[in-house]
Design a protein around this nucleic acid. Structure first.
Lengths: 333, 333
DNA sequence: ATGAAAATAGAAAACCTTTTCTAAAAGGAG
DNA sequence: CTCCTTTTAGAAAAGGTTTTCTATTTTCAT
């Protein structure tokens, strides 16, 4: 059971394969009568050109690889949809690959994509190891590569980034104007975005003459995060502390914090205010609904899509760094 | 800036390209000394074979396409991770594509994958239109294709399915033994799985001489679902009804139902019990935690991965249908 | 040392397209 | 009707591998 090739079509239409190719790609004048013959043959034989062969000779696959540490994270899925919508519009097919957050998986997947000759790659939340080792910087010389968030900032690569710094500052400023005095910061272990926010937090608290207190939990983006955040916050309150506000590095943590505060008898937002980060759906299904910093994931994705497109089409690999502003969403917490 | 080819390696090592190919693929005896020369050349030139060329001649890309209606649905992401882990283990690369739940996108994406000569495809929750039109059945004759859940049952294709029927029956039986008398069924508009569960529900209620009541909301897998479910349930209670139990078709709906019951002053589980479907993380972050029917998504995915692998390797396209049992998870609702 | 068998290497075909270059046909002006 | 220009079509090369088939070298028994 062999597939039908351009050869078969040429034979059926009684023309050369060159002519068939021209009809298919519509890139060269062909007499109307012959064009018709060819089109009929294509139809009856249901011919679909082999994109492998085409890509081989054109040296372009019209595909883009998108890497994400996790597909079950609502933050990433929004970004991905943004990238995807732009690239689809431009005639590219995207392939989504997930790395489970492992640096080794990341390079493995990238190799696989490079071997398959994708025209470009977008890496969400690149792993620190691969940034500091210079891996990305080296890679970016050979293939259009765009980093999004994460440790992107450290490299010589092009990247698109949320302004987490501004977001954190906004949230803290808001809490102050609401009269909060004892603001706790809740973060995961290792992520560039956490580091940045912590920096802002420390600086801010110092500037306002307030004592800073950081709670640190293991990384993750699921129920474990929620549980650990709950535990950490409950422990903290149980130890006799009386926080009146908490800034969490993402919405999952904020959910856990909410739960922990409740379990210790604190009312949110009356006794304690909570602000999360990301503005994922999660922040809308709790009670009270969570206030959070909107990171405009869709827009971030679209930005990334347009940027990688430009990099692929105009062989302009010039590093370009773009920031996307964040917005504070005040809900009920 | 040309890429290095097998030709370059052959030249550098002073051997033929045939020999280089043999060293790379390790599929033919090569003298130890020549092998070493070649390996050195490969290393210094950082040669990576062009998989397009290889695939073209071997007529196999070692890739599998996975289609999903949505990447932001925790149900699907679990299944996908299951498929992925199995196929990666077998040496395949998977490409994830999402269709936004549109039947037209589904065929478009499939065409793109077929043109790129994937070795197989796994379609999660196939669209009804493409099932009834016979599209999948036709497609399955030309390429290994496995359907998962959704309207799979209607086709002559191979599929893997959750036993939603059994799950619904289990949940209802449990509610009865708990003494519930007025059980409401909450579903979305169009999904085969909803239809099946409804059937079980109606039959079950009739068999127990109880009155059945179905609440129907718009489809979706996000905050909208939650809001609409909340609205629907609140309206229902406000209309004077006094349900003492509710079975929801997924966890999102259950979350909404919980919220709706609360807003009308009903206590869960004291006044009203709620059971959801899927056992996604969502069911664990509400208060009280949601009881739900575990659909074993990871296992379902692994099953699918193994199945498509077998279809690809042993050209056995024989239709095979597999069901995966569900389990009732009793938590706090 | 000889011959046959086994081990190793290479030349060329094949995979399916696109593209370049050349050739043939058609059209138009004198 | 001839010659030149324009339009249309085809032959062959190219893209980077794998694989088949043939040729050479090595090994070993005699």
């Amino acid at each position: 059971m062999k597939r039908t090739t351009i050869q078969d079509v040429a034979q059926a239409a009684g023309v050369s394969i060159t002519t068939v190719s021209r009809v298919i790609n519509n890139n060269y004048p062909v007499k109307a009568s012959t064009r018709k013959k060819v089109e009929e043959a294509v139809d009856t034989l249901k011919f679909k050109p082999n994109l492998l062969a085409r890509s081989l000779i054109q040296n372009s696959t019209k595909t883009v690889g998108i890497l994400t540490p996790s597909i079950e994270n609502l933050f990433f899925s929004e970004v991905i949809k943004g990238v995807d919508s732009i690239l689809k519009e431009k005639g590219y097919t995207t392939f989504l690959c997930h790395t489970e957050g492992e640096a080794t998986n990341e390079v493995e997947v990238i190799h696989s994509l490079v071997d398959r000759r994708v025209d470009g790659m977008v890496v969400l939340d690149p792993r620190k190891e691969n940034v500091v080792s210079g891996y990305f910087e080296e890679l970016a010389k050979r293939v259009p590569l765009l980093l999004v968030n994460g440790y992107a900032q450290g490299t010589g690569c092009s990247y698109v980034l949320n302004d987490g710094e501004g977001g954190a500052r906004m949230a803290l400023k808001y809490l102050i104007t609401e009269g909060c005095k004892r603001i706790v910061f809740l973060r995961g272990k290792k992520s560039h975005s956490y580091d940045i926010k912590e920096e802002v937090y420390l600086e801010f608290m110092k500037a306002h003459g307030m004592e800073s207190r950081i709670l640190r939990i293991k990384d993750g983006n699921d129920i474990k995060t929620v549980e650990q955040a709950k535990e950490a916050v409950a422990d903290y309150i149980r130890s006799g502390e009386k926080p009146d506000a908490l800034l969490a590095c993402n919405d999952w943590m904020a959910v856990g914090a909410l739960s922990g505060a409740k379990s210790e008898g604190l009312l949110v937002p009356k006794d304690m205010r909570i602000i999360g980060f990301d503005n994922t759906i999660i922040s809308m299904i709790t009670e009270p609904k969570l206030s959070t910093v909107d990171q405009q994931m869709t827009k971030l994705g679209q930005l990334a899509g347009n940027r990688i497109y430009k990099m692929m089409t105009t062989k302009d690999i010039e590093n370009q760094k773009t920031y996307l502003e964040t917005r504070l969403m005040i809900r009920e917490s």
